[in-house]
Write a protein that binds this DNA or RNA. Sequence first.
DNA 1: CGCCAGGCTTCTA
DNA 2: TAGAAGCATGGC
Length: 266
Amino acid sequence: MIEVAFPGGMNLALTLDCGQAFRWKRNNDGGWSGIAYNTRITAYDLGYGRVRFEGIDDNSFSDIFADYFDYHRDYAGVLNNISQDAVLAPAVEKHGAVRILNQEPWECLATFIFSACNNIPRIKLITERFCDLFGEECDGSHFFPVPETVAALTEADMAPVRSGFRAKYIINAARNITGGGIDLDSLSDMPLEQAEKKLMNLNGVGKKVADCVLLFSLHHPEAFPVDRHIARFTELNYPDGLPEYFKGIEGIAQQYMFIAQRESRV
DNA sequence: CGCCAGGCTTCTA
DNA sequence: TAGAAGCATGGC
């Protein structure tokens, strides 16, 4: 158990539940429980950017979870840049630092393949069934299924997951990973467009899903996923293209656009 | 019943 | 190269 003070702040609830990750659950006591990097974690927002983590110690934080929670990014600076935008400044003021998670790439890829033409509650349900059925059991919960397991499945095996037409894409992606068709980790050091193309070679992965994977698991904060909500938002507010002050952090700004758009819908 | 959900592939002209 | 249809499923 450790307590961490995040420089620049940490809105734990929105960070874990704004549609970038699908396995974190709020507990009755207000804490959040989830699994990442084969670790069961419960996190409590203590306010003022402080978080208590159960399941994480100093070593695993510095080795893994500092990166997972984007601890080292200068969010004060990032939010200062985004606040130059009159449309997003209120959302930044209201919510503080909604951090980008650096998730496990395969899990991120699979869940965003599930996300295609779907809604967030159902993405979570499908992901949970997928883990319960095919993930290694751990204290009554389940890890995310490893690619080797998924590569060996058939579409019929996937039927209970109820993921519809997305099942074959998941299996195919797993086979590409285990067969060496794509190396997700290598995309971190690749220029954005090149990494997008690699991901889009996978059946069922278009530009939107590719950008989500690059933003939420592969250290590309400049990736800018455009779904139907963001498309509407940018056409309305930035008809001539994104402002210069979003340069390099387009994906982080996108989170606030998504939140602002969601809150503007009654 | 019809419409929609943080899309993508395939077919068509 | 652009636009529409089809794709599985489930909530409303």
